[in-house]
């Protein structure tokens, strides 16, 4: 990698800070005035652009979260980008850390769940789908990248007002290139949660056995057999290292 000129680094440090902090301080040193516009006026064209692009893009990805935060949306986004800048080259990744950020801000658990759901929609839209072929009991399996498991404690239909309910486990995944939500029964949620980290079927079975009552053990075995027979058409789990 060639060495960047010192003045280029200084200029980009200054201009990045100016854009993020929305200040024209220092513009006279770096920017030549034109016959029609002063240095600060010229710089302001870029300043005006950055934040609306971030708030609009995130509002597209988190429409209901934005609706609920309403008047606080803009300041929340600004704090988020200033504290947890995302490294992604695509605006699709701008919200990668947003649910975690909301959690760290101490907003309600329900709002964090809603933001996680909306983040999962974006993930479903832009992730790849892998096919799985034959599997043995000791093949390490993992949840596919387009799938997210979320547990929510509000009625989706009750949005935008979040009314507390009992927890409902959901999976959000890609179907026909669009995000799709399905609710999961408790056993299926327990099963899928095993594959957030790479796990083979036999280990998943052992762990599930330990978390259900003795008389449900047969049910677990039956469930896994039945689920796996449909796994290749569901595209929810895959081999850890797809071949």
């Amino acid at each position: 990698m060639p060495t960047p000129p010192r003045r280029l680094i200084d200029l980009q440090n200054w201009m990045t800070n100016a854009i993020i902090a929305e200040t024209t301080l220092g513009s006279v040193e770096w920017i030549t005035p034109s016959t029609q516009r002063g240095s600060d006026d010229r710089l302001s064209t870029y300043l005006r652009d950055f934040w609306p692009r971030c708030t609009d893009s995130l509002a597209e990805d988190f429409p209901r979260t934005a609706e609920i935060l309403d008047a606080q949306w803009e300041s929340t986004v600004k704090n988020y980008i200033r504290q947890l800048p995302t490294m992604g080259f695509s605006l699709y990744h701008l919200g990668d850390n947003f649910p975690n950020f909301l959690q760290s801000m101490g907003v309600s658990d329900l709002l964090v769940q809603l933001a996680s759901m909306e983040k999962a929609n974006v993930t479903a839209e832009i992730s790849s789908i892998h096919s799985i072929n034959t599997l043995s009991a000791d093949t390490p399996l993992i949840l596919q990248p387009h799938c997210t498991l979320v547990s929510i404690e509000f009625e989706v239909e009750s949005l935008p007002k979040l009314v507390q309910t009992d927890p409902v486990p959901l999976i959000i995944f890609q179907s026909d290139y669009n995000p799709k939500i399905e609710s999961l029964d408790p056993l299926e949620a327990l099963f899928l949660n095993q594959f957030i980290t790479p796990t083979c079927l036999s280990d998943a079975y052992d762990r599930m056995e330990r978390s259900v009552s003795d008389d449900s053990m047969d049910t677990v075995a039956e469930f896994i057999d039945d689920w796996m027979s449909r796994a290749t058409s569901k595209f929810w789990i895959m081999r850890k290292d797809p071949q």
Binding site: Q12, M15, T16, I20, Y46, F50, M87, G88
Partner: peptide, 11 residues
């Protein structure tokens, strides 16, 4: 981009 922060603009 500067220090891994994307400005999403052509500066």
């Amino acid at each position: 981009r500067h220090h891994d922060l994307y400005m999403h603009n052509l500066l």
